[in-house]
Nucleic acid binder design. Structure first.
Lengths: 226, 226
DNA sequence: ACGGATTTCCGTACAGTGCACGGAAGGAGG
DNA sequence: CCTCCTTCCGTGCACTGTACGGAAATCCGT
């Protein structure tokens, strides 16, 4: 019977099994699981139960996949909230950005290599731009303020991530950890302050540094806002 | 004559052709010339006119070489000058740091991956620490200030470098460049400001952002200093 | 209904990578 | 002279990105 053709559930390519979206989400998952060094086209194809070369129907190169994955996770940050003071808006947006970059610790390494030109990344910077322009800040101070905020965010999370990565390696880098802890202790001991490094530490340091920058921006706004 | 032992000018067994130092300086040269993606142990050995595996007598792994090269160029930054106001000292130090990172554009990508635990990197952060502690700043604000400054520096140069790298590629990324220029223009046009991107632009933006942060730090110093 | 054209999939192959291993060259110490 | 020990490095292995060409399945014009 010729209709039996409808019952061959997966003989060969009826509808395309693969798609750009499926590849990108699989790439994000692989990067989360294995990091940037564990990422390979073969591993990505295996995760999709496809042949390696099948990916290249939808994607130009490995770099292409990485760019796509990077912009994909930028969308997780979302738009800044519409209400609140400008300080609250920016603090919330940067805090959420930091959370996303900690959830996907491979982001800083890619950002350092590839330009941020995906639609989601551009939309984010545009939103921050609007929040500050609404307060009356103008170029070049406006551009500098945005650059400072994003540079700070990105630099902070990068060192935060490599710190945790170093500390989590069991015993191979024990010597490195001892070295930096000694370094910190030498500093702190001079001033009688207890050295301790944990998540809460990074949280408060992030907010302290952010408020440093926000104070500097506030001093450049045309009139004072609470 | 037993004294002849004192005239053996070279070290123990035989004068080694290779050395850790020679490998490190060759690695810096190779990274400057080819970038991090063009760096390979085979290319490094070729540059030293040696067999690939000879390197492994002096170096544990490729990662090891990269760590060594990174700390090597950190020494180019030098110590902060001893006199001047704290703002002048920090501005000078950060400006010199930025210059070194532009001279070796592969630095941000490595910093995003590996922890900064080489002796030269640690010495630099210690010097900045001292300059601010001398003004009376104490932890946790002191630690936050240092982290903010280095995060800013590193994030700024990273985006600066990828920007130039993108722009310099002849025509392949012309579309990307057009996209970001459109983006900038859309912003600037809203406010009637001319968009232009060149070296001087990055210089002034770097100093604007730096002064933003320094103002924030100044507000936290115990008593006012000019 | 049939014969191409097109789309999807992927096996094979090639040039490149980091590095483990084992061996050769040659001076040093006995 | 023999032996050890340091430096050097050729070979090999598992792995990478991707160019190429072919096979299978669907679509389309007739």
């Amino acid at each position: 019977m010729p209709e039996s053709i409808w019952f061959r559930e997966d003989a060969r390519p009826r509808r395309p099994r693969l798609s750009r979206e499926r590849i990108v989400t699989a790439a994000v998952g692989l990067l989360d699981a294995e990091g940037v060094t564990g990422f390979s086209m073969r591993a990505l194809a295996a995760r999709l139960q496809a042949g390696t070369m099948s990916l290249y129907e939808y994607v130009r190169s490995k770099e292409d996949v990485l760019d796509l994955a990077l912009d994909e996770v930028f969308s997780e940050i979302g738009e800044p909230s519409a209400d609140g003071t400008w300080r609250e808006i920016l603090t919330g947006h940067l805090t959420r950005s930091r959370a996303v970059m900690r959830r996907h610790p491979w982001m800083p390494a890619l950002i350092a290599t590839r330009p941020l030109l995906g639609p989601n990344a551009l939309a984010g910077s545009r939103a921050v731009y609007g929040a500050l322009a609404r307060e009356g800040l103008r170029p070049p101070e406006l551009t500098a303020a945005i650059g400072t905020l994003s540079s700070y965010l990105y630099g902070f999370v990068a060192s935060e991530n490599t710190w945790w990565a170093t500390v989590r390696t069991p015993a191979a880098d024990a010597e490195l950890r001892a070295r930096v802890t000694d370094h910190l202790l030498a500093h702190e001991a001079e001033l009688g302050h207890q050295a301790r490094v944990d998540d809460a530490d990074f949280d408060t340091h992030f907010l302290l540094g952010l408020n440093l920058i926000l104070d500097g921006i506030a001093a450049r706004l045309p009139e004072d806002t609470p």
